[in-house]
Design a protein around this nucleic acid. Sequence first.
DNA 1: AAGTGGTCTAGACCACCTA
DNA 2: AGGTGGTCTAGACCACTTT
Lengths: 269, 269
Amino acid sequence: MKEEGSVKRPARGRRPAEEAPGGWTGKVDKQSWVPAYAQLARLLRRRIADETYAPGSRLPSEATLAKGFGVSPMTARQAVGVLSEEGIVHRVQGSGTFVRRIEVLKTHFALDTLHAVLADQENLDVKLERAVVERVPSGARALLGAGDGEPLVVVERLIRHRGEPFAFQTACTRFDPESPILEKMLNTAVLTEFFFEAHLPGFKKGVLELVPAVLDGREAGFLGEQAGCPAFRLEQLLYDFGDRPAAFGWFLVSPGKVRLVSRVGVWDD
Amino acid sequence: MKEEGSVKRPARGRRPAEEAPGGWTGKVDKQSWVPAYAQLARLLRRRIADETYAPGSRLPSEATLAKGFGVSPMTARQAVGVLSEEGIVHRVQGSGTFVRRIEVLKTHFALDTLHAVLADQENLDVKLERAVVERVPSGARALLGAGDGEPLVVVERLIRHRGEPFAFQTACTRFDPESPILEKMLNTAVLTEFFFEAHLPGFKKGVLELVPAVLDGREAGFLGEQAGCPAFRLEQLLYDFGDRPAAFGWFLVSPGKVRLVSRVGVWDD
DNA sequence: AAGTGGTCTAGACCACCTA
DNA sequence: AGGTGGTCTAGACCACTTT
């Protein structure tokens, strides 16, 4: 599609972070700092929200959108791709792109609030409650692939946020004096990096599972809750770069301190 | 980049669903049915997995990858985009693309297992336990923006899977005889479509929240569990196309029947 | 046969970051 | 200043679905 004259567009690439002025309903404005694909995506999102494109109906084809809005096919495709990744729209090859109905069951939940608290490091403090070499815990033993007689290290920590108890952590690993993981688990300095920098150096992969739990008396005491109170337990099984299970542990967090919220459908904000 | 001679590549667009033969370590093979971007993505994923590209290190630039593997820049970009969406890699404008360390806290949890059970409709049955017009529940009343005297309809259902109790559902809406939502809530035929077809016709958007809960005696009785047993509660607040809150409810599911699992880091399978 | 999405090319300019 | 990612173009061929 030819541009009119040889008007120089003001900016490509990453524009300065500036949101659109709002109240805008027209077409794609190439003078704007908002990327063309984002403009088109928003326009489509609004039309879906006001049921111009009703749930279940087909969107105009990408080629049609490209011509209609004076952008290249790849750009139009990118715009539709945004909605597709948002789950608002569903692409079917050879058939078209369709407005999704709300899918309650295909949503996902993020640990945003947990992340937010742990990122606020100035107001966090960690207290080591217990660090022992135990021969007892059998569940962890199986997960770590440890032999029956092999000792395991168990570490318990209480994490406080602004003075309030926030989470109670238990972590297990093999008692291997040569392992850097053991050192990391016991070293409070590295500990910060270990869990609060939101990444885990030295591990290749892991499996997390979120399960509902009921606090026992001891756990409730640490967290300042009543025994029998419901809580999230975030279990972690982490593997080293040899694909061997290397550490197992869990966080206990009182509900209300962490929320798992997910939005579905069309939110045009 | 010029192709050698005028060899016709066998297929573009969507290839037949055929996984690569495996055991392949070389470069991008344009004769293959696996898209070039997917081949390049997998190759990069393997190099990350075997620490050729170590956590924290920088990937070759997209331009370098494009030249090195004989693909166009957009294709190389698409490959890196795959890893970026997988969370394995992190793009920083003007700086480069970096191998992420494992981020425990930025994962998300999907309702796969819940979805799997509800998709298995042949083995599901639903029993209406209670449907009443109540003037009592005040929490739901506030959420729905209902007045103090306004009656609310409360529906309770027990969902069984293969004869076993699976979930206990409670749903509330305004008692508005004109509302199609009320009809949907009471109609068992539409009910199937309503929750088990995994979409919600008639609603524009919704907020879901997952909270840990402890079953009381009545709930435990329905689910065949012990009172005091932990369970997930999946709360739903749904809005109609006028952005008015229209229905509020929750599922109670015993743990073990539904699992929330998430994988982080590099899984090369 | 026609239309749709999926993939791909070979360039381009821009904003951002680092040296 | 040079390299990097972010955006964009104007086409192309393919596989798939529908007509």
